[in-house]
Amino acid sequence: MRFVSITSPHSERPNSVTMTMLWVIIALAPGGVAMTWYFGWGIVIHMLLASAAAVIAEALVMKLRGRPVMPAVSDLSAAVTALLLAIALPPLLPWWLTVLGTVFAIVVAKHLYGGLGYNPFNPAMIGYVLLLVSYPVEMTAWLPPIMLNQHPLDFAQTLTAIFGGGLPAGLQWDALTMATPLDEMRNQLNQNRMISEIRQSTLWGDFGGRGWEWVGNWYLLGGLILLYKRVISWHIPVSMLGAVLVMAMLFHFLDQESHPFGLFHIFSGGTLLGAFFIATDPVSAATTKKGQLIYGACIGFITYIIRHWGGYPDAVAFAVLLMNMAAPTIDYYTQPRVFGQRSTGDD
């Protein structure tokens, strides 16, 4: 009797890029569902729209570059970029802005730099920042969460609003939209009101804005899934959230009435989404363990600094892009010693 001898690897796994991307999409699901629950169908429409635009743009660019189209499209990386962008967009954003941001993200931020694995910046955040800088009015027109929304739109009405058909009769944009919690807190503080006074309003939940903070919880759950599946390591999320918390608590204890409690910053805006899904992008983040700690902490610090002193209410996207620039330098100075080598006295 003969036994067939097989060389290793004995068990194969499917393409790891595709699997990684698939897990990111799965982990985004709780947050996505929560967003849809609180802010209506707009999120779903933008996700579909952005995914379609991203896949088409990816296919066209690969064709233009003379590369095989199918492997690039089927590795799901374009879809992940699109979903991460779509989830950051206001629910009633006009459709062409979603398409513009997605195409810019895929074509300019990803493929002009060499495609997947070569992009120095997170493509989804480039698309988001392009839209935020270029179209500030549209990009800040957020809906209130469902329990505060006087006029919830159904699916057809949302579709009409996004595709340029305007709002249902009798509704104005001003009546429909509302400032995000970060924006609201900032405006109120700028009017020299005290936090205990500001928080009397029904807009606020336990830590952040009502509804908004729950979306944060579901992103946290998604992040834990990614950690459990070892798609990401704990270094970047922990150091980023830690840095935000340290900064916020420090200022909170210095002056409790003009600096919100630390967890407000964690559960508002894009902090949790950014910490688990965006800052951990394996391509544009730092790669060494020590480097990841520095990278995440700096994102946290910059986020708080821009939120507090800068011109924009939220800053995760800017912080991530700024640190993307620093990531190669961080990696250079945090290279781990080769196993077995002793440190020479001077390093």
Binding site: L100, V108, L130, V133, S134, Y135, P136
Partner: peptide, 14 residues
């Protein structure tokens, strides 16, 4: 609707 970024310095570089 103008794309503000094109007028800003990054628009020149791009």
């Amino acid at each position: 609707k103008g794309m503000l970024l094109a007028i800003l310095p990054p628009g020149a570089f791009i």
